[in-house]
Amino acid sequence: MIGKSLMAATTRPLILSILAEGESYGYAIIQSVKRLSDDQLKWADGMLYPVLHKLEKDKLIRARWQSTDGKKMRKYYSITEEGLAALQTEKEQWQFAYGLMAKALKLGPQS
């Protein structure tokens, strides 16, 4: 389990990295998050959507509606060039933070 502020900080890079793998929709993104965290990240599923909207507004991701079986309308999200660049920056920052924390807190390699 992680704290609330850290969780908030991880959300953005997490979603961008999932979408960097390919186009996806809300429910599937949540499933990926759960899978990656071994169900340890306790998000309210619905809180994903405001984040997605914010990313969309910042032009880091884009969305489109598509009918899946002629009936269901589903909103698909994909990462933009700007999103990829932002993800790269995030990676570098997290890399640095991880290095710092590893040294400071004398974290051993993960088993």
């Binding site: 309210a44 619905g46 809180m47 959507y49 405001p50």
Partner: peptide, 13 residues
């Protein structure tokens, strides 16, 4: 999750 919380966040976003 709570529609109230999510609605608030959506409005803000």
């Amino acid at each position: 999750g709570s529609p109230l919380e999510i609605g608030k966040a959506l409005g803000k976003s």
